[in-house]
Design a binder for these strands. Structure first.
Lengths: 244, 244
DNA sequence: TCAAAAGTGTTTCAGATACACCCATGT
DNA sequence: ACATGGGTGTATCTGAAACACTTTTGA
């Protein structure tokens, strides 16, 4: 029996893209009163879990994602660690810890990871809990310190896509340039000029044009593209270009 | 008596700048054999410490730095967490943990912070251990996983100075443009063109030109500048400019 | 034939790059 | 007087921004 670390957890901010908005995976947290069957907790959290004593935190995060999505090669990156001694001290959180057989007084350090998947790749099941994609803009109050974790993940994502071609992770394997542009727009919450966007994209050698086109759309079908990690790895500059 | 968390530590990568090279603070780790007085451990580490149970990790990192430097308002930023189950399992590290009354089998998660100070501001004392500034290029093998921690800190620093005016933290309050340029060069390990550097700097409103000049130098004395955090905060763009 | 998104080129402006000489000071 | 680093301007190129029309498909 693998030993669980009572002090270390990971939380995964799983971002998805549904074709128009940036979404995040949110799970419902409900608890019924033993006698009355009344809901005494009914709120929402990100996904996370404790880490096994002999497991790296990266593996733990992959495990959470695999349990959740069945996917085993998603993009995953650590972004920040949350360890405030009060982070689990709100009444509902204390109650939840008690009822799930954990020590509510323990100080749990959680390492935040964020992940990117195409929303439609994911079938949602997680430990019998109700799991939903929620547009980032519509996420209300979350349990624990999960609103803070989400905001930090978003901040990291917004910065990271400036340097690294990871936006593809939010799209199907074959995608159109408009879809790609929409991903940037959804993450940054701004609009980009189509022609300028395409000029910039044209410089990225790792975006491979396919001989295929969209089908079944009621307008001129768009060309499809794929991301070539191989070309990217070969051509990427040493870390980034140095200009102050 | 404050309770120490046996599972959470912070490690601080304290960067300094000596006028020509980027340096990092390194402490000697020595252990004598009880009988023979022979050194059985004689290697080097970064600075770090355990966290108190009621203390935030940021406060713990500030505490480490304060103990080390007497400075209480240094730049400090969390950059990554290291939690590999094997990270403290090398023989010297196991021995060290035993001799310093810690459980060598415990899994210790360490949160990495990096800090920036002007080297000459710091008087070096730390728990009776020998502390030295070492040029980053000349740091040899370190104990624990500290080489990895240092490399990650450096990577973060190299990226961060592209977005945020934190290079000033490595200089005296009043500095010359050449010193500032040298800081960028030292961190990135490249050379920059003097005239182009100054043109770029001229656009940064938060760099205030003083009416003072260098004294005691055997050449045309340079003008002195200060960084104005106030102007920076007022004029900085929302997070960063959005271009893909 | 209409609605919808795809796809495309030019002009203007800002910033990046490359490059060489005179100036003020201490010794 | 000389050695040392300070300080400055211009020309060229590359990328960013602004902007409108034709094309292809399904309904």
């Amino acid at each position: 029996m693998r030993q669980i670390s009572p002090y270390i957890s990971v939380d995964c901010v799983l971002f998805g893209y549904n074709g128009s908005e940036l979404e995040v995976l949110i799970v419902d947290r409900t608890l019924k009163d033993d006698n009355s069957d009344e809901l005494i907790i009914n709120d929402r959290t990100l996904t996370g879990n404790h880490v096994y004593e002999d497991e790296t935190i990266e593996d733990a995060a992959y495990r959470v994602l695999f349990d959740l999505t069945g996917l085993d090669s998603v993009f995953l990156e650590q972004f920040k660690t949350f360890a405030n001694p009060d982070r689990l001290k709100r009444p509902n959180d204390q109650l939840w810890l008690q009822r799930t057989n954990r020590n509510p007084d323990a100080r749990i350090v959680t390492v935040g990871f964020y992940s990117l998947v195409a929303t439609d790749k994911v079938k949602l099941i997680w430990k019998g809990r109700n799991v939903n994609w929620v547009p980032v803009k519509e996420v209300g109050e979350l349990a624990f310190d999960h609103n803070e974790i989400l905001q930090e993940a978003l901040k990291t994502l917004r910065l990271r896509i400036k340097y690294e071609p990871i936006t593809f992770e939010l799209l199907p394997e074959k995608f159109t340039l408009t879809q790609l542009q929409n991903v940037y727009e959804a993450i940054w919450g701004i609009e980009l000029d189509k022609r300028n966007f395409r000029k910039k994209i044209a410089r990225m050698k790792y975006l491979i044009t396919l001989d295929e086109k969209q089908t079944g759309v009621a307008h001129k079908p768009a060309r499809l593209y794929v991301f070539s990690r191989e070309v990217y790895t070969k051509t990427k500059k040493e870390l980034f270009d140095f200009t102050i």
